[in-house]
Amino acid sequence: MTAAAERGPGQGHPAPWLVPAVVVLALFYAVPVLDVFRLALSDATLIQTADGVSTAALRSILTDPALPQVLGTTLVFVAVNVVALQVIGLVIALTIVRGERRGLPGMAAFRTLVLAAWVVPGIANGLIWGMLFDEAPYGTLNSLLGFAGLGPVAWLSDPQMALVSAVIANLWQGTAFSMIVFYAARRGIDPVLYEVAELDAAGPWRTFRSITLPLMTTAIAVNSVLVSVQTLNTFDSILALTGGGPGRATEVLALFTFNTVFYNLDLAGGSVLAVMLFAIAMALALLIGWLGRPRGPA
């Protein structure tokens, strides 16, 4: 009989069990992040190693006239997505819960449809929406609009419209995550509260305002942060949809970082941008710790 066996299941040394996870966290997260900081203060390119400390990359990125535009696009892209993803996700979650309660058919099928969009690879998402937004007369949306005597819309060639199109494509794919979180949160609310509301003859809007919404604030707050970070880090669907264009109209920070490193081969500059991405994500992560305190994260 080993020593551990005498102590019962509640005890034992966690260290050996945690070794694989800790090694992975160190090798694939902690050390690379530190290395990115080091590279940001170097003059490394993708094909040339760092040669001493330098702030040249930092200065050239910070004074790059493209940066303010990229950050502005990122802010708009993330902000609009965070609001729209959650509003649609909440509407879907509450609608499905209501439908299930009333025993209406079709709820599972609808949930499946939303989830199916979720597992479409980002690159495929960009390519599929690229076909839908095709501006030729035979493009999906333009030919549909043509039936109604409208259009054609310059979905991808107009800078502002291109950003709208990128948001639509992201909404299609991203809504499922918020739907799951809100569905779980709504199902976690004690049904007795709704019975009481019904006895008090409270209408649906009043019930939503006084019971559903207040009891879901933690879920909404935490989900807002998660969705912001996810959206901030999204770039493969935009890469496939617009390539960041026209001009830089849809070039978000993650895509700008990708282009800087892997097309311009500017590793030091890309590292400066990666540090920015990391810093924004971590600032948002700290928010989650603070928001999730009363009930734990997510």
């Binding site: 993650a254 970082t257 590793l267």
Partner: peptide
């Protein structure tokens, strides 16, 4: 929450 892009550089 760390973008794979960040850790992929090193």
């Amino acid at each position: 929450m760390i973008s794979p892009l960040v850790i992929l550089l090193p």
